[in-house]
């Protein structure tokens, strides 16, 4: 069953998170394995599977990058495998610069200021890509879906940078 149908939501990348969360909770209540404590073992197993499926669906729809990937798959977009390396040189050069920027953070004169500036830079660049993704997901044709899948790949690099920055912040402010 399509995940959007499961939660009775329109098939759209723009999603009402409050509605998603409410639908998730009511479905999860109905499928909760505790409710089937006295049912046959087959019914119990079904309830556990259903509950797990609802959880997976919720995690995917809740997270924008996963939601986009899921929708693109459903639309039959040809997605490059995870193993395929990414070769957009300009984009990767920028990624190198951003990693270098993060590497320099502990040596900055004003660490707080540098960390804030780094957060802002990453956010801005993420947002620019994300806005493009929103538009492309709405366009919903073969060409736009193909570009959207490239943007999803790019956003993953920003996710990694975001995690790296969080790790550095933890180290810096623990000391």
């Amino acid at each position: 069953m399509n995940y959007f149908d499961l939660f009775a939501l329109p098939h759209s990348f723009e999603i009402d998170l409050a509605k998603l969360s409410a639908a998730f909770q009511s479905l999860q209540k109905m499928a909760h394995p505790d409710k089937f404590a006295h049912a046959s073992s087959q019914q119990q197993l079904l309830a556990v599977q259903k509950s797990a499926n609802i959880n997976d669906a919720y995690q995917i729809l809740k997270t924008p990058i996963k939601r986009a990937e899921y929708m693109l798959q459903q639309r039959g977009t040809d997605m490059p495998s995870e193993q395929t390396s990414f070769q957009d040189t300009l984009f990767l050069m920028r990624q190198m610069e951003l990693h270098e920027m993060l590497e320099e953070l502990p040596h900055a004169d004003d660490i707080d200021g540098a960390v804030n500036a780094a957060n802002e830079t990453l956010d801005n660049e993420y947002q620019i890509l994300f806005c493009q993704l929103q538009q492309l997901m709405q366009d919903n044709n073969t060409a736009s879906d193909k570009i959207a899948s490239e943007i999803v790949r790019k956003l993953k690099f920003y996710q990694k940078l975001q995690l790296e920055l969080e790790r550095i912040e933890e180290q810096l402010f623990d000391e």
Partner: peptide, 15 residues
């Protein structure tokens, strides 16, 4: 000659 590649799955960047 410069070769730039990246792996979206883990965010690795290699030059």
């Amino acid at each position: 000659a410069t070769g730039m590649v990246g792996a979206p799955a883990c965010g690795d960047v290699m030059k």
